[in-house]
């Protein structure tokens, strides 16, 4: 199949790729950009393991072609930590034991980072609804919700300060 050039901006860095038009963004991020933190759990848009941020909004990386993402600001899990310093949500996940196998974790992190950037006032019910966008098979979600609430409270405190 014929390949076409595409320029992606991922975590602030430009990637000039040549891909088949049918290449999904998730595959392009993983295989062409080498960013394997975005995981694939179902490739039909339900599990959310491939959740990334497109212009700030959480989106399924498996449901968009790489060529459609040209010109968008793409953020992946690799953008969260700064050197050895983890993102506060990553720290909350560790503190609350919000991951076991860790396969769904990048998707949940991006879902929550993006969700709380858009709506910082999400309450417990709102967070549960947001978290129910993605699937986790290990934790039973309890600790993911606790980590999310912890991070949301930090955001509120920072805003109030």
């Amino acid at each position: 199949m014929q390949k076409i050039p595409v320029r992606l901006r991922v975590n602030g860095e430009l990637h000039d790729l040549i891909v088949e038009p049918r290449r999904t963004l998730a595959d392009a991020l993983r295989e062409e950009c080498g960013l394997t933190g975005t995981h694939l759990g179902c490739e039909h848009g339900i599990c959310g393991a491939c959740t990334i941020l497109l212009d700030g909004a959480p989106a399924r990386g498996c449901l968009i072609f790489a060529v459609q993402a040209e010109g968008m600001d793409i953020r992946t899990v690799e953008s969260l930590a700064t050197g050895a310093r983890a993102h506060p949500l990553q720290e909350a996940f560790v503190r609350h034991h919000a991951l076991q196998c860790g396969y769904c974790t990048p998707g949940f992190l991006m879902l929550l980072v993006g969700g709380l950037e858009r709506d910082p006032d999400l309450d417990a019910e709102g967070l549960r609804e947001l978290v129910s966008s993605n699937l986790c098979r290990c934790t039973g979600y309890q600790n993911i919700l606790a980590a999310a609430a912890d991070y949301a409270a930090q955001l509120r405190a920072a805003r109030g300060a």
């Binding site: 394997t36 933190g37 899990v77 690799e78 990553q90 996940f93 860790g102 396969y103």
Partner: peptide
């Protein structure tokens, strides 16, 4: 105690079989 496994996993730096080529 907090898990030793988490440092890499929350950073998306785990290495699952699909990540290896």
């Amino acid at each position: 105690l907090e898990r030793l496994e988490d440092f890499a996993l929350v950073r998306g730096r785990g290495r699952f079989v699909g990540d290896l080529s």
